[in-house]
Design a protein around this nucleic acid. Sequence first.
DNA 1: GAACTGACTGTAA
DNA 2: ATTACAGCCAGTT
Length: 109
Amino acid sequence: MPRHEDNPALQTIWDVVARIPRGRVSTYGEVAREAGLPGRARQVGYALKHVPKGLDLPWHRVVGAGGKIAFPPGTKPHREQARRLRAEGVTVENGRVARSFLPESLPGD
DNA sequence: GAACTGACTGTAA
DNA sequence: ATTACAGCCAGTT
């Protein structure tokens, strides 16, 4: 069993996620870059999947590239994330977050 | 150690 | 818009 508590990469990821301001959304790739792990978006997914019990992290502010919610549409976690985001004033439409809430460093534009 | 898996991402057709 | 595929890499069979 991996020890998450002494894995600096995961710690940093959790820290970065915890700093995402309310009403703002970031992406897996962006979080990875900020955590000093460029190109390792998947590790961010792993980190969020294994958040230590007791740590209250705004995991719902992390979405896929382009603002797409990572969970399959219709699933419980998908709805949960959409609900939490809307509760913060974030526009979620068709499983997507409006561009205006995403980091500017995204492709396109 | 090989093969798979996954809360991902970019490129191409 | 959708599908396919190559990178990516820690964890799990």
